[in-house]
Nucleic acid binder design. Structure first.
Lengths: 219, 219
DNA sequence: GAGTGTGAAGTAATTCACAGCG
DNA sequence: CGCTGTGAATTACTTCACACTC
């Protein structure tokens, strides 16, 4: 029943995002309801986990029936902040940045790229999917005036902290960091990292042992 | 002291990868030793955690001194499977795939792309960073004959499971999945996912509450 | 003296199991 | 009945604290 600002486990939040995606699939498949069991098997967790995760935000299910797909999607959209648009800036207009700015999934879920920056003079002025690449030096000015709240960092590791400091100074409150280093931000700013090197090395660790990584035991 | 096949926590494995990267930095900075405290502060965890993580594989440190950078790197390289080369295939030669195949970090750590596949006839035959893009139909044949052990999947969500089945059938034992869906694999195959949508939505969840996400309390 | 290695203690996350409702 | 919602039990992970070594 608790909807207030409670301590929500990070892992639970990420699962909410997974549930949401599965619900989109189910809606697309024409399903009207979804049991915790379905949600669990499609996301690789357990039915009890799904119910626990959802129940900390409200009683969205109907006993004997399951969860109605559309209403639950709406709830999750609200929880995850997907019922509004977010202005996003890309910092680092390399190949990865170019890939992300085109990634349809972001656009479809309300993330709108409104600026792209790079420090390489050769890239300044070039177009990237409807945006003109601006010099990183203009970061502070452009971000502040355009109301950007999220920065996606696809810069080299060595530049990541400096760029993070700059976007935070420009008022950005959320950072999605693709550089393989941990960046430090002041209180009140959120950072999530996507570290593909770590994931790849976790994979080779598992391969070296000759075992499967796979998460949950319950099939 | 235990070096045998212990149940190693997933989170611990990922931290090992982080420690390794920090050690590379420290080596580059000319440091000969590193305390658990340094490793902790640079990776965002606690000194006790660092020691616990490392101690489950051996006694690598010297009391009163810390860890010697080079020897510890060597240990971690071994643990993480980075002391050998891995042949990697890229499946999905879109923008993201193109970005990954150029990502210097992978190459520098022993990951060698030996084949690239796509199902789009328009892309077949085109070059991608020294590789010629092959039709996905050739997957089975090429992979089996080239000894590829790891597949990196950058295909659309809808195709991910099908592609995963194909690479597993071709003998691949490890998959790094960039598609935003969970893929199911048989026992003995490892999958790690990089889901940037989840990370971005975890970020907007945090922003919606107006709080910082950041991991550990201890500074 | 400084900093590791590690049992013990504490905290967090997951799973169980079942009452209760549609 | 079937399936949710949830306290209680369990398991996993982290932090403490200190003996021990260099």
């Amino acid at each position: 029943m608790a909807v207030s600002q409670r301590k929500v486990a990070n892992s639970a939040i990420r699962r909410l995002s997974l549930y949401f995606r599965v619900l989109e699939e189910l809606a697309h498949e024409g399903e009207a309801t979804a049991s915790s069991e379905i949600l669990a098997s499609r996301t690789g967790t357990t039915a009890a986990q799904v119910r626990k995760d959802l129940s900390q935000f409200g009683s969205f299910g109907k006993r004997g029936l399951g969860y109605e797909v559309e209403p639950l999607m709406k709830e999750l959209r609200g929880l995850l902040g997907l019922s509004r648009r977010w202005k996003v800036a890309l910092v680092g207009a390399g190949r990865l940045g170019a890939a992300l700015i085109e990634y349809p999934h972001f656009r479809e879920h309300g993330f709108e790229f409104v600026a792209a920056f790079d420090s390489d003079p050769a890239k300044i002025g070039r177009r990237l999917h409807s945006l003109t690449i601006q010099p990183s030096a203009d970061l502070a000015q452009t971000l502040a005036s355009s109301g950007v709240e999220i920065a996606i960092l696809t810069v080299p590791a060595a530049a990541a902290q400096e760029v993070a400091d700059a976007v935070v100074a420009a008022g950005v409150r959320g950072i999605l960091n693709f550089a393989p280093v941990r960046i430090r931000v002041p209180e009140g700013v959120s950072v999530n990292g996507v570290n593909m090197t770590v994931e790849l090395e976790a994979l080779t660790f598992a391969l070296r042992l000759g075992a499967g990584t796979d998460r949950p035991r319950k099939e």
